[in-house]
């Protein structure tokens, strides 16, 4: 009986170890898998050519990713410019001003927002944002003939999608600022806002920048919602109202025909690898900052 129990524990221990090993190496499998599949294109085209050429004609063996890369960067930047100020203000309200009930109410709504599927954001963008841009916003800036399917529409939809993750992390960061610091500042006569501006935000700055970077990397890879509202034309966008064609959309739109043209599937896998590499770098940097923040506080 006793041997049975210990034996069971040993077997269970080994099993959970092996599964943990699998989970922790999944990342490497993904990287290796994508790398092997993108090798055909990497070995026949120069990396700088792939990244900085702007002509995309798979049938003629021309794979220039530049328009896609620039679209992705623009859309992500727009979304971050919209989302970051709002998220900082909202997190300050929730962590410093709101009562407990209001805070838990708002955070549950933010959690629900996080669970809304991207296709719903996309359909909402098509119903509301796209017509708003083509009928109201673009004419106001003197651009009459836009369809509204633009990098701005993509950026707005994305901004709402990154709210939850950015707010979530910012709240965590603000919570690590010791209450004594706030009390010290208040006791020497600073008002609440001055305390937040000069003490809390300054102390939380590294964590807040990590939150922004994580939001950025989330926005970078978002696919379907953006694909639905950016118009998908492979030219480098020159204004907010131009349409764009981000990398994830490129992958999702062409999965059907990629097997019929040589190197096309490899090019798309390279696009996925590119996305993954950028996101990996962002994530690792942000995690290192977050770990420092946590260590400092504990």
């Amino acid at each position: 009986m006793k041997v049975g129990r210990v034996f069971k524990d040993k077997v269970a221990g080994k099993t959970v170890f092996v599964l943990s090993l699998f989970a922790s190496t999944l990342l490497f499998f993904i990287i290796i898998g994508l790398f092997i599949k993108s090798w055909p294109i990497l070995s026949t085209h120069s990396l700088s050519g792939l990244l900085f050429d702007s002509i995309w004609k798979p049938r003629k063996n021309l794979f220039g990713f530049l328009p896609y890369i620039i679209s992705t960067v623009y859309i992500t930047l727009i979304s971050i410019i919209i989302a970051v100020p709002l998220c900082i203000l909202c997190s300050i309200y929730l962590s410093e001003y709101a009562s407990k009930n209001v805070k838990s109410f708002v955070t549950s709504l933010v959690d629900i927002l996080a669970g809304i599927p991207s296709v719903i954001f996309g359909i909402w963008g098509i119903i509301m944002i796209v017509p708003f841009i083509s009928n109201t916003l673009a004419p106001a800036f003197g651009e009459e003939d836009t369809t509204g399917y633009s990098i701005l529409a993509g950026g707005i939809v994305l901004a709402i999608m990154v709210f939850p993750i950015v707010i979530h992390i910012m709240l965590e960061v603000l919570r690590t600022v010791p209450i004594e610091l706030r009390e010290a500042s208040l006791s020497v006569g600073a008002n609440k806002w001055e305390t937040i501006k000069k003490v809390v935000l300054r102390k939380a700055a590294p964590g807040i920048s990590a939150a922004i970077v994580l939001g950025f990397s989330r926005a970078f890879g978002e696919t379907l919602a953006v694909l639905m509202v950016v118009g998908n034309t492979a030219i480098i966008p020159h204004s907010l109202f131009d349409s764009g064609y981000p990398l994830p959309a490129l992958i999702a739109n062409n999965y059907g025909e990629m097997m019929s043209i040589p190197l096309y599937d490899s090019a798309l896998m390279f696009a996925a690898l590119l996305l993954l590499s950028v996101i990996l770098i962002f994530n690792i940097v942000a995690r290192i900052v977050m770990m420092r923040v946590e260590r400092q506080m504990s």
Binding site: A23, L34, G221, I251, A252, L276, I279, N283, R287
Partner: peptide
């Protein structure tokens, strides 16, 4: 590594 996996977009999982 779980934290990093959490940040990987679904299109990359799709490709994988």
């Amino acid at each position: 590594s779980l934290d990093i996996l959490y940040g990987i977009p679904s299109i990359v999982y799709g490709a994988f």
